Simulated scan of single mutants.
Amino acid sequence: GVRVGILTVIASASSEEYLMHRLQINSPYDTIVSRANALRERGAELVVLMVSGELPFINKLLSQSQVDLVLRSDPYYVEPVAPDEKPRENYVIVTSEAAAAKVSIEWPQGNPAEAQYEVVQLPLSDYPKDPVIAEQVATYDNRITALLSEQVARLTSEMDTTRDAVRTRENGFGNLVSDALKEASHTDVAIINGGAIRGERSYREGHLLTRKDITSELPFRNHIRVLRITGADLKSALENGVSRVEDASGRFPHVSGMQFKVQLSAAPGNRVKELTINGSPMEPGRIYSLATSDYLANGGDGYDSLKRGTEVPFSQQVTPLIADIVISVLRRQSTLSATATGRISFVNGRDS
């Protein structure tokens, strides 16, 4: 038989996302190399690395024979265009959550570098369920279902989170999210991008919003970030946000503490007019406090001007998820009127 050593890697953000305070996550590359060497010293002839997302150095590990086979489960995988970035034959990627990979390996004894790999992806339904694991899954599903079914607020108006509604104009749910960020961080203003809202639903008045509704609307595990930023950079961020309204781009901004007009006939970069901050004209040289998502703070969706801001530590030890902040606000309010309040208006009549 062949002695096989198996390594697994978890995302570096896990310690924060899942509140595992005592968990320390080391540099993945150095740790993989160290542990792979240790497995070989213990007699492993084949070292397998299992991952669930993107690691930029996978091909490097394989080309240097640090590991022999990589198994990756990733439903969001997009094959790279560059030939040197394409996965090697011993880099197996399963993109369907309902599939498994069967890997057959042949190589000259003692020389896995010359191995030949044959990969077949099979539906999980072809395999019988393990009764013990099936019971564990059912127990977990029941707990998650009970948690997500919690009712947090009642809608006192209709609410629209379809693509056009959150990417081309002010939106009631977008206002809720930005207001929640501003309230949680006690900042001057807040910005969230319409692309962060993915529910694609139309809710009727009287609907009882659940935790599942909110996590479906905000599926990305974005965290709140607080920045100190100049008025000029804040306006640049808004200019970016309205630069592609015609394309229903996900960068469209939903704001709190701000009011402005959008002149669509103007060129992108010069569309934001009459910007006020909490009722007063924006001052380009003044420093404002801003609450936003980690995605936007890192320049996502073209918000490069936010990277010039100075990050302020959040008041809590663990930075919360934006979805959890919104759920907490809704619990306290118990009702939600998801209507526009005139924060963003269009000079060319695009308000509705």
Rank of each mutant, 00 (worst) to 15 (best):
V4A: 08
I6M: 03
S12P: 02
S15A: 15
S27E: 13
T31G: 13
R40E: 02
R42G: 07
E45G: 10
S52V: 06
G53A: 12
E54P: 11
E54Y: 15
E54W: 15
K60L: 14
Q64F: 03
P75L: 13
Y77P: 04
V78Q: 13
P80N: 00
V81G: 05
D84T: 08
K86L: 15
V92N: 00
V92P: 02
S96N: 10
S96Q: 13
A98S: 13
A101H: 01
E114G: 01
A115H: 00
V119C: 05
V119Q: 02
L122H: 05
D126G: 11
P131E: 06
Q136D: 06
Q136W: 06
Y140C: 11
D141H: 09
A146F: 04
L147D: 10
Q151A: 13
R154G: 12
L155H: 04
V166C: 10
T168D: 01
V177F: 06
D179R: 12
H186T: 07
I192N: 05
I197W: 03
E200I: 07
G206Y: 12
N222R: 08
R225I: 11
L227M: 13
I229D: 11
A232R: 12
L234W: 01
S236C: 08
L238A: 03
E239W: 00
V245T: 11
E246C: 00
G250E: 02
H254R: 03
M258D: 05
Q263P: 01
A267H: 02
N270E: 12
N270Y: 03
V272H: 01
E274V: 04
T276W: 02
Y288Q: 05
S289L: 02
D301I: 06
D304Y: 06
V312S: 09
F314M: 10
Q317D: 10
V326S: 06
S328I: 05
R331S: 10
A340Y: 02
T341M: 14
S352N: 13
